[in-house]
Amino acid sequence: MASHLSDRTMTDLLEGEGTPEQRAHLASCAACRSRLDNARAALEAASKVDVPEPPGLYWEALRRNVRRRIAEEPERRTRWGWLAPLAAAAAVVVIVALSVGERPPTPAGVAPTLPAWSALPPVEEDDNLAVVSGFAEEEALVADWEEGRGLAAFVAALSDQESEALTMALRVEQQEGEL
């Protein structure tokens, strides 16, 4: 007699499939028939056992609880969501940059006073930039550099009087040929 049928083949036979050869083996092999009968009996018994139905209002309660727990979850980030922190940081930088040099509202009828540093030439045309950079030794400016604000922030933070004093000093030094 050929070897017994495999579990896989027995499942096929249990489900009404299998080849004619396999069915022929089953007809002639009491051991395989017994295994199949046992499996069929177990399947029949197991199929009758259902899960007790929960109370009618249960499903709404389940959905409510799932909704509540999902609401407690952090916001989902989309594919580009990782850019959000960078975008927020960039927005802060722009806002700070725009707010630098901001002055209180000018009374009506009075010509607005330009900030002192607005008289300075562009950086690439400023022959005095080396001197201004020398001020970096000043403690306040060092702090500015260390905090990443740099030269522009230092100049922007000067009052009108300080700007005039700086301009005068630069002119004097230029006249004395030190530049």
């Binding site: 579990d7 896989r8 499942t11 499996a39 399947l43």
Partner: peptide, 9 residues
């Protein structure tokens, strides 16, 4: 299939 039949047994 094998697990199913074995499990039923």
């Amino acid at each position: 299939k094998a697990n199913l039949f074995h499990g039923l047994g």
